[in-house]
Design a protein around this nucleic acid. Structure first.
Lengths: 159, 159
DNA sequence: ATAGTGGGTTTCATTTTGGAACTTGTCAAG
DNA sequence: CTTGACAAGTTCCAAAATGAAACCCACTAT
């Protein structure tokens, strides 16, 4: 399966990965959430080749995750900003970082600490149910094919 | 930067991506959470080459995300199961799927619906603060270098 | 006139992937 | 006892993606 096919699968995860499922893209997005916006800043911080950076930024713009916004004329210079669609990826980034903090840290602990502005405390993100607000674990969820899909998705669930 | 270097960065996101930051690995993990355990089942469902599947499974086992458990002798057959470390990736999978449901669905809606066993309702995952239980958005978090890291990480934050 | 900056593109060698066939141990059917 | 099937890989080769480094263009500052 190639990248193009991936985006056409009847699976939200495949479709998401068709957009952000590569290490560089996710590192670019991490930086976007830290406020980085310019080509050369991404290049320096992430250490990927300009070639790939240009390619990944273009794809993110095509998918509507980032927009190019001019910040000066003569010569025209544009920066990359998260759209609403891009901002919605925040839980993805947060959960990746949180797993790294918990399972990949060395004896020095987490490289970065997160403080919740609302309550001022050092926090980690927790996933809860939108309906009852209880935390959800791997065994707490039942999965069923969407109404408008039928067999197509049942096969996927059954294996 | 190569994969090996990625895992040594003082950034929890890089370290996480060194383990799961590739499309096949994440699709394998999605299937693990759906209960898939055998080599040929992954192969059929995901449609990746055996070559890569073997490689990715080996890496996941090396990183302690999956374990091989024998399910028959003569001939020896082993299946792959999520460890505690692997189960901890649930929020990552959930947030990827949820973003796809919200932003990549076609007119038929989400391919798969999630029901919370606790309350019985159709749900989506929400990220909240571990301390005050309020939802956290992109602007609600302050980020500071971990106590044991210093300049090394401050540079990364400043850009 | 010269050097620097921001945002790329081009070129080419090296890696990674995709596709398909081959292997190994075992059982079951004809 | 020969053939076929199954599970879980491995091997081989061609095609695609990546990494490194140089080059380009429109300006600005010195």
């Amino acid at each position: 399966m190639r990248w193009e096919e991936l985006g056409e699968q009847p699976c939200s995860m495949s479709r998401t990965l068709a957009v952000v499922g590569d290490r560089w893209t996710l590192l670019i997005l991490r930086d976007c959430f830290l406020g980085v916006r310019r080509f050369d800043a991404f290049e320096r911080r992430i250490g990927l080749t300009r070639h790939l950076l240009a390619d990944r930024l273009k794809k993110l713009v095509e998918h509507g995750v980032l927009v190019k916004v001019p910040y000066q004329q003569r010569p025209l210079r544009e920066e990359y900003r998260l759209t609403e669609k891009g901002l919605a990826l925040h839980p993805v980034i947060l959960s990746l970082v949180s797993w790294g903090d918990a399972w990949m840290a060395d004896e020095r602990g987490a490289p970065i600490e997160h403080y919740h502005k609302g309550c001022g405390q050092r926090m980690k993100p927790v996933m809860v149910c939108s309906e009852c607000a209880e935390p959800v674990g791997p065994r707490d969820i039942d999965v069923r094919p969407g109404a408008a899909f039928g067999e197509e998705v049942e096969k996927l669930l059954a294996g």
